[in-house]
Design a protein around this nucleic acid. Structure first.
Lengths: 362, 362
DNA sequence: TTGTAAGCGTTATCAT
DNA sequence: ATGATAACGCTTACAA
């Protein structure tokens, strides 16, 4: 039995054919053994078992017997009971409050996650990431966070007045915001970069290449990062700033770049420079420019933001602002960890350097 | 106080300057209120409180008083206690056993996640994704899974003999594998596609465009999907199969495509067709071809696998095999859910259709 | 309809 | 060095 079922399907049949192989019987899991069981098996009390589990004085003989028993039955502690007693879970939640598309195509989020996980892991914490993709999710995640499943949380792309954001404040869960601090200044620290300064810097650099008509594709104006990047752009342009040359788009994604670039080209065919507020957006913009027969950087210079893996893969490679995503994740993790440990004075914010990296798209 | 600290940094300073703003004092969280508290506040017993929480007969007056009390103090149940009693967590774990790069740049994983989350969410389950990025992680996640934090697990890209894979089997946790079933056929179902058939089909299609020398970039030969795709390729080519024209690379990633394409071009400059076993790989390969001055599809036809967002964004758009990632996620979630519910005969495997989609790269 | 009490599996505080 | 025993906060019979 149990032939590999997938040799049966062709993969070509466009129809909705679904192949089921033979059933699998879910064997009712045998009851897990408890400290009590181990104690009985080793002929000692639960207290002693606990002492070998969590440190304490215990005689060599007893210890040996207990360890044997543990190995024998493959004992693994029940964390619900343990958490209940210890009043902590040794887990930290990670949530990215981003729309689908961004979540799927923004490599930065993954990098932040990996960075955060690295330091939490070292500290013995389990990082669990929760996706929020509907109101139902929001509610459930809120319960999850306040229910004691985690000792702290890292929240990426929080917006002010977001239900989760406010909840965290209310229940006093150790937390840190990444990237986009909410407008309301509350007791929750954040780590990020200087979006205004970086946007200003890269726009200035673009201006220095002698562009006459510079536009911006401005996504996510409902987030601090979005408005900050726009602010920096405006500051750099000064008198030359023309509101008609900023195309607002909803998200930091490829589709936003495509839409924004079309708008811009429409409004100002003589455009010769574009600041796209993320690399994914820039990639979309470059695609439109290519289709419109515009050469980059010959006819129009394009700069992005993030220095994510997109930047290396556009043609030509993108000039952009480097965002130290991995490090941001690490810092965020450190900050929650310190709060969990009860550190009284963790910094209210950490800003990391985000230098301009100049490649060939402008 | 609390000026926005980030107006201070320039974002340009290449040095390791880090700006800390004023500290934040972690307010010791006030004790959470319990069912007992609510009962006291409402002047009823805990049993009654529980009845309004979890359904049951309760008089209108009592109910009103209790609900008022709950709202008053913002009661939220302690899940550790609840799990301990109920012996379930209403959460399921999601793990992707992939290397960094793949995790970060493979949009399919995100899509699977979203699909799975959608159905789990509807069923009232919290999906938590766990990243495994080191041996330390493996061990901790193993404890997490066996400790009762989750009622089930979805495992993407499992390999046979992987510690997690075997653990899951041992502890009898309801689980399902996605994409790449382990070689050992055990009691854990999987959902995926027919890799052999699909690889064969797209290779045949490529052959039909009159290519003479067709090579393959073959990543992840330590996974079923990797060897299956290679098998399909070989089957399609039949007598014309030339082992010198398959370039093995470690991972399903862009870098793999770059490396593999270089190898292939090196070994056979007259190459005029390439099957890259994932879209990310194909994107890397096309980049190398472009740099080598080869036109796609003029000089060499390229096909990929996955139909991820990469496929739309290569230049020209990629001919590839459509993988219904979202649906795969949904099915996987259904399968764990059914197991958790105690369904005795869930299918041992589910294979979804994966049609070839023909665009312009071949 | 409501209250009481036992118990989930740990950990921690006592005596011993 | 070890053994009882009392919580942790919730659910759930069962009794009232």
């Amino acid at each position: 039995m149990c032939e590999r079922a997938h040799t049966l399907a062709t993969g070509l049949g466009g129809v909705n054919s679904v192949v089921y192989s033979d059933g699998v019987t879910t064997s009712g899991a045998p009851r897990r053994s408890t400290v009590k069981d181990i104690a009985a098996a080793a002929g000692v009390s639960r207290g002693t078992v606990n002492r070998v589990l969590n440190g304490g004085y215990v005689s060599p003989e007893a210890r040996a017997a207990i360890q044997a028993a543990i190995a024998e039955v493959g004992y693994v502690p029940n964390t619900a009971a343990r958490n209940l007693k210890r009043r902590r879970s040794e887990a930290v939640g990670f949530l990215a409050l981003e729309p689908h598309t961004v979540l799927l195509e923004d490599p930065n989020i993954g990098a932040i996650m990996l960075g955060a996980n690295a330091v939490l892991s070292l500290a013995g914490y389990q990082m669990v990431s929760l996706v929020i993709d509907s109101d139902r999710d929001t509610e459930r995640v809120a319960r999850y966070l306040s229910g004691g499943f985690v000792d702290g949380a890292i929240i990426v792309s929080a917006r002010a007045y977001d239900p989760i954001t406010t909840l965290i404040g209310q229940i006093g869960l150790p937390a840190v915001f990444v990237g986009h601090p909410p407008d309301l200044t509350n007791a929750i620290p954040f780590v990020g970069i200087d979006n205004v300064g970086s946007a200003r810097a890269i726009t200035q650099r673009l201006m220095a290449t002698d562009r006459r008509r510079i536009g911006m594709i401005a996504p996510a104006l409902n987030r601090d990062s979005g408005v900050d990047r726009l602010t920096g752009f405006r500051e750099a342009l000064g008198d030359r700033f023309d509101p008609a040359l900023v195309a607002e788009v909803p998200h930091y994604d490829y589709a936003g770049g495509v839409a924004g670039m079309r708008t811009l080209l429409d409004r100002e065919p003589a455009l010769d420079g574009v600041f796209a507020a993320s690399d994914a957006v820039a990639a979309g913009a470059m695609q439109v420019l290519r289709e419109a027969g515009r050469d980059v950087p010959g006819d129009v210079g394009v700069v992005g933001f993030d220095d994510s893996s997109w930047a290396d893969r556009t043609q030509p490679p993108l000039s952009t602002v480097h965002q130290p995503a991995r490090e941001i994740g690490r810092r965020a993790a450190e900050l929650v960890h310190r709060q969990i440990l009860g550190d009284e004075d963790v910094p209210g914010s950490v800003l990391l350097p985000s230098p301009v990296v100049w490649r060939h798209s402008a």
